[in-house]
Design a protein around this nucleic acid. Structure first.
Lengths: 86, 86
DNA sequence: ATTATTGTGGTAATATAATACCACGTTTTT
DNA sequence: AAAAACGTGGTATTATATTACCACAATAAT
């Protein structure tokens, strides 16, 4: 149901959104890192879309970026059109 | 900077949001599970807030719930008021 | 022209997430 | 009243996320 491609796409979109916020706020990786106890190179990899991070790390990012969850996840994915649900 | 309490709160809020969507759509755990290749007991634990899930599992949930990322993360956290940033 | 900062890839060790079960008491349906 | 479906806690194994580094080329600031 969920192939590697879709997973990779999701991580890539998440990373892209992270990068967008980072650039909008004129932050650097080391800058964010200082505010959320994460290694800057790790954040760089997240932005690249190569990491499958957890909720706790997401929370760290929210603090580092100073944004709400909805802001970091403000992007769309493809959902099954044939999947009927209310 | 991020203590266990804040992490637990975040997971709890996420679980609550999952539960809200599940109830709104009148879905069951086994129901969601069938649509996203996850074990129903695992989803139950996520709703309880005891699991630190990854982006890939989040994607599974999005498919299982048939919602967009922003919908699942439509809740607020406390951010540092003294943390000045643009 | 020098210095400082930035993004980035690599890595080894440790911690922990994911998976796939079972079992059971409690509703809900039939 | 019987059967089916539900939420839920437990668990052992396997896979992988996290952490904390280093190093370096490219860019920006002094």
């Amino acid at each position: 149901m969920l192939d590697e491609k879709k997973k990779d796409e999701f991580k890539a979109k998440f990373g892209k959104q992270l990068g967008k916020i980072k650039n909008d706020k004129k932050l650097t990786f080391r800058n964010i890192a200082k505010n959320c106890d994460l290694d800057s190179s790790f954040i760089s990899k997240i932005e690249k879309g190569t990491e499958n991070i957890t909720l706790e790390t997401i929370l760290n990012l929210l603090y580092g970026l100073n944004v709400q969850p909805g802001e970091l996840f403000d992007f769309c994915i493809e959902l099954n059109k044939d999947d009927i649900r209310k």
